[in-house]
Computed example of a mutant assay.
Amino acid sequence: MLILDTQTLIIVVSFIYFLVGAMTFFAAVNSQHGEVLRLAAFSAILGGCAFLLGLKTTNGRYWGELAVWFSNPMLIVSTALLLSSVRVYTGKRPRWNWVLIAPIVWIGLCFWEPFISDVNLRVILFSAIIAIYSFAMINTLLKYQIKDIWKMAPMYFVLSVHGLFYLLRILLQDTTYNFSTPLSLSVTAMEEAFFIVVFNYSLLLMVHKRTEKAFQQAALQDELTRIPNRRAFFEDAKKLLQSSNHAGNPVAALMCDLDHFKLINDEFGHEHGNQVLILFANTLKAAVPNHGIYARIGGEEFALLIEQTSASFPLEVAQSICQRFHALSHTNLGKLSVSIGVAFSTDVGYDIDSLLSKADDALYHAKRNGRNHVQTWPLPDR
Protein backbone atom coordinates (compact mmCIF):
# COMPACT_ATOMS: atom_id res chain seq x y z
CA MET A 1 0.00 0.00 0.00
CA LEU A 2 1.30 3.44 -0.96
CA ILE A 3 1.71 5.70 2.07
CA LEU A 4 1.78 9.40 1.23
CA ASP A 5 4.21 11.57 3.16
CA THR A 6 1.93 14.48 3.96
CA GLN A 7 4.71 16.86 4.92
CA THR A 8 6.61 16.26 1.70
CA LEU A 9 3.43 16.59 -0.34
CA ILE A 10 2.59 19.90 1.28
CA ILE A 11 6.08 21.20 0.46
CA VAL A 12 5.58 20.12 -3.16
CA VAL A 13 2.16 21.80 -3.29
CA SER A 14 3.62 24.99 -1.82
CA PHE A 15 6.33 24.94 -4.47
CA ILE A 16 3.67 24.53 -7.18
CA TYR A 17 1.73 27.49 -5.78
CA PHE A 18 4.86 29.67 -5.69
CA LEU A 19 5.89 28.61 -9.19
CA VAL A 20 2.42 29.29 -10.63
CA GLY A 21 2.32 32.64 -8.83
CA ALA A 22 5.73 33.67 -10.15
CA MET A 23 4.87 32.67 -13.72
CA THR A 24 1.52 34.46 -13.58
CA PHE A 25 3.12 37.57 -12.13
CA PHE A 26 5.73 37.50 -14.91
CA ALA A 27 2.94 37.20 -17.49
CA ALA A 28 1.26 40.26 -15.95
CA VAL A 29 4.24 42.46 -16.83
CA ASN A 30 3.33 44.67 -19.79
CA SER A 31 0.04 42.80 -20.20
CA GLN A 32 -3.12 44.69 -21.11
CA HIS A 33 -4.80 42.67 -18.36
CA GLY A 34 -2.13 43.16 -15.71
CA GLU A 35 -4.56 43.65 -12.83
CA VAL A 36 -6.34 40.37 -13.59
CA LEU A 37 -3.09 38.42 -13.65
CA ARG A 38 -1.55 40.18 -10.64
CA LEU A 39 -4.53 39.27 -8.48
CA ALA A 40 -4.22 35.64 -9.56
CA ALA A 41 -0.45 35.73 -8.94
CA PHE A 42 -0.86 37.15 -5.41
CA SER A 43 -3.51 34.51 -4.78
CA ALA A 44 -1.11 31.70 -5.68
CA ILE A 45 1.77 33.14 -3.66
CA LEU A 46 -0.50 33.64 -0.63
CA GLY A 47 -1.80 30.08 -1.01
CA GLY A 48 1.77 28.74 -1.06
CA CYS A 49 2.53 30.64 2.16
CA ALA A 50 -0.64 29.23 3.75
CA PHE A 51 0.39 25.66 2.97
CA LEU A 52 3.87 26.21 4.38
CA LEU A 53 2.37 27.70 7.53
CA GLY A 54 0.29 24.55 7.98
CA LEU A 55 3.28 22.31 7.37
CA LYS A 56 3.74 21.36 11.03
CA THR A 57 0.07 20.74 11.76
CA THR A 58 0.78 17.13 12.75
CA ASN A 59 3.75 18.02 14.97
CA GLY A 60 2.02 19.48 17.94
CA ARG A 61 -0.95 21.44 19.25
CA TYR A 62 0.76 24.84 19.02
CA TRP A 63 1.46 24.56 15.30
CA GLY A 64 -1.93 22.98 14.75
CA GLU A 65 -3.70 25.95 16.31
CA LEU A 66 -1.45 28.35 14.41
CA ALA A 67 -2.56 26.72 11.16
CA VAL A 68 -6.22 27.02 12.21
CA TRP A 69 -5.79 30.66 13.14
CA PHE A 70 -3.80 31.83 10.11
CA SER A 71 -3.29 29.18 7.43
CA ASN A 72 -6.98 28.62 6.74
CA PRO A 73 -7.84 32.36 6.59
CA MET A 74 -4.93 32.84 4.19
CA LEU A 75 -6.32 30.11 1.91
CA ILE A 76 -9.73 31.79 2.09
CA VAL A 77 -8.21 35.15 1.09
CA SER A 78 -6.30 33.36 -1.67
CA THR A 79 -9.55 32.03 -3.15
CA ALA A 80 -11.27 35.39 -2.70
CA LEU A 81 -8.47 37.03 -4.70
CA LEU A 82 -9.23 34.61 -7.54
CA LEU A 83 -12.84 35.77 -7.43
CA SER A 84 -11.57 39.34 -7.61
CA SER A 85 -9.45 38.50 -10.66
CA VAL A 86 -12.50 37.00 -12.38
CA ARG A 87 -14.53 40.12 -11.58
CA VAL A 88 -11.84 42.38 -13.04
CA TYR A 89 -11.68 40.19 -16.15
CA THR A 90 -15.42 40.72 -16.67
CA GLY A 91 -15.06 44.48 -16.31
CA LYS A 92 -16.14 44.76 -12.68
CA ARG A 93 -14.26 46.08 -9.69
CA PRO A 94 -13.03 43.80 -6.88
CA ARG A 95 -15.22 43.68 -3.81
CA TRP A 96 -12.71 43.85 -1.04
CA ASN A 97 -15.37 43.23 1.58
CA TRP A 98 -15.79 39.77 0.02
CA VAL A 99 -12.05 39.26 0.40
CA LEU A 100 -11.91 40.28 4.06
CA ILE A 101 -15.22 39.38 5.70
CA ALA A 102 -14.83 35.56 5.59
CA PRO A 103 -11.30 35.44 7.10
CA ILE A 104 -12.31 37.99 9.75
CA VAL A 105 -15.28 35.81 10.73
CA TRP A 106 -12.99 32.79 10.81
CA ILE A 107 -10.45 34.44 13.11
CA GLY A 108 -13.28 35.63 15.35
CA LEU A 109 -14.58 32.06 15.65
CA CYS A 110 -11.10 30.93 16.66
CA PHE A 111 -11.70 32.64 20.03
CA TRP A 112 -14.57 30.15 20.56
CA GLU A 113 -13.22 26.96 22.10
CA PRO A 114 -15.79 24.56 20.55
CA PHE A 115 -14.74 25.78 17.11
CA ILE A 116 -11.03 25.25 17.79
CA SER A 117 -11.58 21.76 19.20
CA ASP A 118 -14.02 20.49 16.54
CA VAL A 119 -12.17 19.65 13.31
CA ASN A 120 -15.37 18.64 11.51
CA LEU A 121 -16.99 22.02 12.26
CA ARG A 122 -13.96 23.82 10.88
CA VAL A 123 -13.92 21.62 7.76
CA ILE A 124 -17.61 22.33 7.12
CA LEU A 125 -17.18 26.12 7.42
CA PHE A 126 -13.97 26.22 5.38
CA SER A 127 -15.43 23.98 2.68
CA ALA A 128 -18.62 26.03 2.49
CA ILE A 129 -16.66 29.27 2.02
CA ILE A 130 -14.45 27.82 -0.74
CA ALA A 131 -17.45 26.25 -2.50
CA ILE A 132 -19.36 29.56 -2.38
CA TYR A 133 -16.40 31.44 -3.86
CA SER A 134 -16.00 28.79 -6.59
CA PHE A 135 -19.64 28.91 -7.67
CA ALA A 136 -19.61 32.72 -7.41
CA MET A 137 -16.81 32.75 -9.98
CA ILE A 138 -18.84 30.52 -12.28
CA ASN A 139 -21.86 32.80 -11.88
CA THR A 140 -19.78 35.90 -12.65
CA LEU A 141 -18.40 34.36 -15.85
CA LEU A 142 -21.80 33.07 -16.97
CA LYS A 143 -23.36 36.52 -16.63
CA TYR A 144 -20.48 37.99 -18.61
CA GLN A 145 -20.31 35.57 -21.57
CA ILE A 146 -23.36 33.31 -21.56
CA LYS A 147 -23.41 33.11 -25.39
CA ASP A 148 -19.83 31.81 -25.69
CA ILE A 149 -19.79 29.39 -22.78
CA TRP A 150 -17.60 26.85 -24.59
CA LYS A 151 -14.80 29.38 -24.99
CA MET A 152 -14.29 29.21 -21.22
CA ALA A 153 -14.87 25.46 -20.84
CA PRO A 154 -11.55 24.76 -19.00
CA MET A 155 -12.31 27.48 -16.46
CA TYR A 156 -15.86 26.27 -15.87
CA PHE A 157 -14.57 22.72 -15.51
CA VAL A 158 -11.91 23.46 -12.90
CA LEU A 159 -14.20 25.74 -10.87
CA SER A 160 -16.97 23.12 -10.93
CA VAL A 161 -14.60 20.37 -9.81
CA HIS A 162 -13.20 22.59 -7.06
CA GLY A 163 -16.62 23.61 -5.78
CA LEU A 164 -18.00 20.07 -5.89
CA PHE A 165 -14.93 18.70 -4.13
CA TYR A 166 -15.53 20.98 -1.15
CA LEU A 167 -19.26 20.26 -1.19
CA LEU A 168 -18.36 16.58 -0.93
CA ARG A 169 -16.27 17.32 2.15
CA ILE A 170 -19.37 18.87 3.74
CA LEU A 171 -21.50 15.83 2.91
CA LEU A 172 -18.90 13.48 4.42
CA GLN A 173 -19.12 15.15 7.81
CA ASP A 174 -22.10 12.95 8.75
CA THR A 175 -20.03 9.80 8.16
CA THR A 176 -17.15 8.23 10.02
CA TYR A 177 -14.69 9.83 7.60
CA ASN A 178 -11.75 11.42 9.41
CA PHE A 179 -10.59 14.70 7.89
CA SER A 180 -7.35 14.81 9.88
CA THR A 181 -5.77 11.62 8.51
CA PRO A 182 -2.67 11.89 6.29
CA LEU A 183 -4.67 10.44 3.39
CA SER A 184 -7.39 13.09 3.69
CA LEU A 185 -4.86 15.90 3.94
CA SER A 186 -2.95 14.50 0.96
CA VAL A 187 -6.06 14.30 -1.22
CA THR A 188 -6.98 17.89 -0.36
CA ALA A 189 -3.45 19.11 -1.06
CA MET A 190 -3.36 17.35 -4.46
CA GLU A 191 -6.76 18.78 -5.40
CA GLU A 192 -5.57 22.26 -4.49
CA ALA A 193 -2.45 21.82 -6.62
CA PHE A 194 -4.58 20.63 -9.55
CA PHE A 195 -6.92 23.58 -9.08
CA ILE A 196 -4.33 26.36 -8.95
CA VAL A 197 -2.46 25.03 -12.01
CA VAL A 198 -5.57 24.58 -14.18
CA PHE A 199 -7.21 27.81 -12.98
CA ASN A 200 -4.21 30.00 -13.75
CA TYR A 201 -3.59 28.23 -17.06
CA SER A 202 -7.25 28.80 -18.02
CA LEU A 203 -7.05 32.44 -16.95
CA LEU A 204 -3.88 32.97 -19.00
CA LEU A 205 -5.60 31.32 -21.97
CA MET A 206 -8.64 33.60 -21.61
CA VAL A 207 -6.45 36.70 -21.35
CA HIS A 208 -4.42 35.61 -24.38
CA LYS A 209 -7.55 35.08 -26.47
CA ARG A 210 -8.94 38.47 -25.47
CA THR A 211 -5.63 40.20 -26.25
CA GLU A 212 -5.45 38.45 -29.61
CA LYS A 213 -9.00 39.51 -30.38
CA ALA A 214 -8.21 43.10 -29.39
CA PHE A 215 -5.23 43.15 -31.78
CA GLN A 216 -7.37 41.71 -34.55
CA GLN A 217 -10.02 44.36 -33.95
CA ALA A 218 -7.39 47.10 -33.87
CA ALA A 219 -6.07 45.92 -37.23
CA LEU A 220 -9.57 46.26 -38.69
CA GLN A 221 -10.55 49.55 -37.05
CA ASP A 222 -9.76 53.13 -37.93
CA GLU A 223 -7.86 54.53 -34.97
CA LEU A 224 -9.41 58.01 -35.12
CA THR A 225 -13.08 57.40 -35.91
CA ARG A 226 -13.40 53.93 -34.30
CA ILE A 227 -15.25 52.58 -37.32
CA PRO A 228 -13.99 49.82 -39.68
CA ASN A 229 -11.00 50.68 -41.85
CA ARG A 230 -10.22 49.94 -45.50
CA ARG A 231 -9.01 46.40 -44.80
CA ALA A 232 -12.11 45.51 -42.80
CA PHE A 233 -14.36 47.01 -45.47
CA PHE A 234 -12.94 44.92 -48.29
CA GLU A 235 -13.05 41.73 -46.19
CA ASP A 236 -16.69 42.30 -45.23
CA ALA A 237 -17.65 43.53 -48.71
CA LYS A 238 -16.35 40.32 -50.28
CA LYS A 239 -18.58 38.24 -47.98
CA LEU A 240 -21.64 40.47 -48.51
CA LEU A 241 -21.25 40.48 -52.29
CA GLN A 242 -20.85 36.70 -52.43
CA SER A 243 -23.96 36.07 -50.36
CA SER A 244 -26.00 38.71 -52.22
CA ASN A 245 -24.92 37.41 -55.61
CA HIS A 246 -25.79 33.85 -54.59
CA ALA A 247 -29.21 34.96 -53.33
CA GLY A 248 -29.82 37.25 -56.28
CA ASN A 249 -30.16 40.35 -54.09
CA PRO A 250 -28.96 43.63 -55.63
CA VAL A 251 -26.56 45.85 -53.70
CA ALA A 252 -25.36 49.43 -53.96
CA ALA A 253 -21.97 51.00 -53.25
CA LEU A 254 -21.72 54.54 -51.90
CA MET A 255 -18.58 56.67 -51.95
CA CYS A 256 -18.59 59.69 -49.62
CA ASP A 257 -16.13 62.58 -49.62
CA LEU A 258 -16.33 65.49 -47.18
CA ASP A 259 -16.62 68.81 -48.98
CA HIS A 260 -13.86 71.43 -48.59
CA PHE A 261 -12.10 69.29 -45.98
CA LYS A 262 -8.67 70.67 -46.88
CA LEU A 263 -9.95 74.19 -46.24
CA ILE A 264 -11.28 73.09 -42.84
CA ASN A 265 -7.84 71.72 -41.91
CA ASP A 266 -6.04 74.80 -43.22
CA GLU A 267 -8.35 77.32 -41.54
CA PHE A 268 -9.11 75.62 -38.22
CA GLY A 269 -6.29 73.09 -37.80
CA HIS A 270 -5.99 69.31 -37.92
CA GLU A 271 -7.55 68.80 -34.50
CA HIS A 272 -10.68 70.54 -35.77
CA GLY A 273 -10.57 68.41 -38.91
CA ASN A 274 -10.32 65.25 -36.80
CA GLN A 275 -13.47 66.25 -34.94
CA VAL A 276 -15.26 66.66 -38.29
CA LEU A 277 -14.19 63.15 -39.33
CA ILE A 278 -15.42 61.69 -36.05
CA LEU A 279 -18.72 63.56 -36.42
CA PHE A 280 -19.24 62.16 -39.91
CA ALA A 281 -18.37 58.63 -38.74
CA ASN A 282 -21.06 58.94 -36.07
CA THR A 283 -23.47 60.15 -38.76
CA LEU A 284 -22.78 56.97 -40.76
CA LYS A 285 -23.42 54.81 -37.71
CA ALA A 286 -26.82 56.43 -37.24
CA ALA A 287 -27.85 56.37 -40.90
CA VAL A 288 -26.58 53.02 -42.21
CA PRO A 289 -28.95 50.04 -41.77
CA ASN A 290 -27.92 46.90 -39.91
CA HIS A 291 -27.50 44.94 -43.14
CA GLY A 292 -25.02 47.46 -44.55
CA ILE A 293 -21.28 47.92 -44.03
CA TYR A 294 -19.27 51.13 -43.93
CA ALA A 295 -15.68 52.24 -43.34
CA ARG A 296 -13.22 55.06 -43.54
CA ILE A 297 -11.05 54.03 -46.49
CA GLY A 298 -8.63 56.95 -46.47
CA GLY A 299 -8.37 60.64 -45.57
CA GLU A 300 -11.83 62.18 -45.78
CA GLU A 301 -13.21 59.32 -47.91
CA PHE A 302 -15.75 56.84 -46.63
CA ALA A 303 -17.34 53.87 -48.40
CA LEU A 304 -20.61 52.00 -47.87
CA LEU A 305 -22.09 48.81 -49.25
CA ILE A 306 -25.78 48.16 -48.59
CA GLU A 307 -28.34 45.67 -49.77
CA GLN A 308 -30.85 47.20 -52.15
CA THR A 309 -34.09 46.24 -50.39
CA SER A 310 -35.97 48.55 -52.76
CA ALA A 311 -35.09 50.54 -55.87
CA SER A 312 -34.97 53.82 -53.94
CA PHE A 313 -33.47 52.56 -50.68
CA PRO A 314 -29.75 53.34 -51.39
CA LEU A 315 -30.66 56.86 -52.48
CA GLU A 316 -32.74 57.34 -49.35
CA VAL A 317 -29.77 56.31 -47.21
CA ALA A 318 -27.44 58.62 -49.15
CA GLN A 319 -29.83 61.56 -48.87
CA SER A 320 -30.24 60.88 -45.15
CA ILE A 321 -26.46 61.00 -44.66
CA CYS A 322 -26.21 64.29 -46.54
CA GLN A 323 -29.03 65.87 -44.60
CA ARG A 324 -27.92 64.62 -41.18
CA PHE A 325 -24.36 65.82 -41.70
CA HIS A 326 -25.33 69.19 -43.14
CA ALA A 327 -27.72 69.74 -40.22
CA LEU A 328 -24.67 69.74 -37.93
CA SER A 329 -23.34 72.92 -39.53
CA HIS A 330 -24.72 75.02 -36.68
CA THR A 331 -22.07 73.53 -34.37
CA ASN A 332 -18.71 75.22 -33.78
CA LEU A 333 -17.21 73.00 -36.49
CA GLY A 334 -18.31 75.34 -39.28
CA LYS A 335 -20.26 74.60 -42.46
CA LEU A 336 -20.41 70.85 -43.07
CA SER A 337 -21.42 68.96 -46.17
CA VAL A 338 -20.64 65.74 -48.03
CA SER A 339 -20.88 64.60 -51.63
CA ILE A 340 -21.92 61.03 -52.36
CA GLY A 341 -21.68 58.83 -55.43
CA VAL A 342 -23.81 55.70 -55.82
CA ALA A 343 -23.35 52.67 -58.09
CA PHE A 344 -25.64 49.65 -58.34
CA SER A 345 -24.81 45.99 -58.88
CA THR A 346 -27.62 45.84 -61.44
CA ASP A 347 -25.51 48.17 -63.62
CA VAL A 348 -21.96 47.17 -62.64
CA GLY A 349 -22.10 43.62 -61.28
CA TYR A 350 -20.90 42.20 -57.96
CA ASP A 351 -17.21 43.13 -58.19
CA ILE A 352 -16.28 45.47 -55.34
CA ASP A 353 -13.54 47.28 -57.27
CA SER A 354 -15.88 47.99 -60.17
CA LEU A 355 -18.66 49.16 -57.86
CA LEU A 356 -16.36 51.56 -55.97
CA SER A 357 -14.81 52.82 -59.20
CA LYS A 358 -18.19 53.73 -60.69
CA ALA A 359 -19.39 55.19 -57.38
CA ASP A 360 -16.19 57.26 -57.31
CA ASP A 361 -16.92 58.59 -60.81
CA ALA A 362 -20.40 59.60 -59.65
CA LEU A 363 -18.93 61.19 -56.52
CA TYR A 364 -16.64 63.52 -58.46
CA HIS A 365 -19.46 64.39 -60.82
CA ALA A 366 -21.35 65.55 -57.71
CA LYS A 367 -18.27 67.55 -56.64
CA ARG A 368 -18.10 69.31 -59.99
CA ASN A 369 -21.80 70.17 -59.85
CA GLY A 370 -22.08 72.06 -56.60
CA ARG A 371 -21.28 69.48 -53.86
CA ASN A 372 -23.55 68.54 -50.94
CA HIS A 373 -25.70 66.21 -52.99
CA VAL A 374 -26.01 62.62 -54.26
CA GLN A 375 -25.15 61.46 -57.78
CA THR A 376 -25.84 58.00 -59.21
CA TRP A 377 -24.00 56.05 -61.90
CA PRO A 378 -24.49 55.84 -64.91
CA LEU A 379 -23.78 59.54 -65.20
CA PRO A 380 -26.23 61.76 -67.07
CA ASP A 381 -25.41 62.58 -70.68
CA ARG A 382 -23.87 65.99 -71.13
Rank of each mutant, 00 (worst) to 15 (best):
A193M: 02
P154Y: 14
I297W: 06
G34T: 05
A286Q: 15
T211S: 07
V207G: 13
V348C: 02
S71W: 10
L355K: 08
T188Y: 07
A131R: 14
L203S: 02
W69N: 14
S312N: 06
T211I: 14
M74Q: 06
Q323C: 00
D174Y: 10
L203G: 01
P228F: 00
K238E: 09
G370I: 03
P228H: 02
L277K: 09
D118Y: 06
A287W: 00
F179P: 00
A343H: 02
W150C: 06
L9S: 04
S244P: 13
G64K: 11
N59D: 11
N332R: 09
A50Y: 04
S354M: 07
F70I: 13
E235L: 09
K285Y: 07
S244F: 15
A44Q: 03
L167S: 02
T58F: 11
H33L: 04
N274Q: 11
A287I: 00
L2Y: 06
V342F: 00
Y89A: 09
L19H: 11
M255K: 10
M152R: 11
T188K: 08
I132P: 02
D360S: 01
D148T: 08
L279V: 04
F51R: 00
G292E: 05
V68H: 11
A359R: 07
Q323A: 00
K367M: 12
K147E: 09
T6W: 04
H162L: 01
I170R: 11
A359E: 02
R61I: 13
A295H: 00
L355N: 07
L203M: 13
L159K: 09
M152F: 14
T376K: 08
L141I: 07
Y177H: 09
L363D: 03
T176I: 02
L19G: 08
R382E: 15
L19C: 11
F313Q: 13
F15V: 11
R226G: 06
R296P: 02
R169M: 15
D236A: 07
I227P: 01
W112C: 04
Q375F: 03
D361T: 15
L379K: 08
E35V: 09
L19Y: 15
V29G: 05
F26K: 13
H33A: 15
Q319R: 12
D5N: 05
A67R: 12
T283R: 07
L204I: 03
F51E: 03
N59T: 13
L284V: 01
D266M: 12
T225K: 10
S180R: 01
Y350A: 13
I170M: 12
H33F: 14
Y89H: 05
Q375E: 10
H208V: 08
A327V: 12
K238L: 10
W112A: 15
L53I: 15
Q275F: 06
E35H: 04
L304N: 01
M137V: 13
H330K: 10
